[in-house]
């Protein structure tokens, strides 16, 4: 028994060095060569960081495309979904409010055109993307608020649409931050 205890202690110390020092530092070192140097890829505007490429942020003004509802109000120092069950009455009321809000701010929008992702909270609360349909229903509003041509906005949406991985795997989506940035740069 005593032998096992001593072996356990020594083995643990050796493995701590291998697994918690050598391994992570090697990865961090090689990771310096990645975009964002392994610290997360940043997006800058006029030299200032305005966000992280992968992290969604809150957009509420009419001239911006809106992202998905978030249970943590896009606070990137935390992350969480709503954890609301599918039949929870309070939750269903919340969804109804979101539908009404979308209808109010997007004149001419039909209820049956609203995609689920625009009225449901994401898993992380930081989802950077919306569906193509989610962007499509906001084009009129954004164009009107910015007093620009609808066609121009449509073009930008198309440019910021991520196709499925390798063209055939997974969903397509639109990155909201990049799209809004492109709008600001017009």
């Amino acid at each position: 028994m005593k032998k096992y205890i001593i072996q356990s202690i020594r083995l643990t110390l050796v493995l701590l060095v291998l697994l918690c020092v050598v391994y992570p530092i090697t990865v961090a070192f090689i990771g310096k060569m990645s975009k964002g140097n392994g610290g997360g890829e940043k997006i800058t505007k006029n030299g200032k960081t305005v966000g992280y490429a992968l992290l969604g942020q809150s957009f509420t003004k009419p001239q911006y495309f809106w992202g998905r509802p978030s249970a943590v109000a896009y606070n990137a120092a935390g992350s969480a979904g709503s954890n609301k069950g599918p039949s929870n009455p309070d939750y269903l009321k919340e969804v109804q409010t979101r539908i009404d809000t979308l209808l109010k701010y997007n004149p001419g929008l039909k209820k049956s055109d609203i995609p689920a992702d625009m009225v449901t909270a994401s898993g992380s609360g930081l989802d950077p993307n919306i569906s193509e349909q989610g962007a499509a229903i906001q084009i009129q509003r954004v164009a009107a608020a910015r007093k620009i041509d609808v066609k121009k906005v449509k073009e930008l949406v198309a440019m910021n649409t991520l196709k499925p991985f390798m063209g055939v795997f997974g969903p397509s989506s639109v990155n909201v931050l990049k799209l809004n940035l492109a709008l600001d740069e017009l």
């Binding site: 979904g81 954890n83 689920a116 449901t120 909270a121 994401s122 898993g123 569906s131 991520l162 997974g170």
Partner: peptide, 9 residues
């Protein structure tokens, strides 16, 4: 269903 799910996935 999209509640609690991510768009890219």
């Amino acid at each position: 269903a999209m509640e609690g799910k991510e768009m890219r996935i």
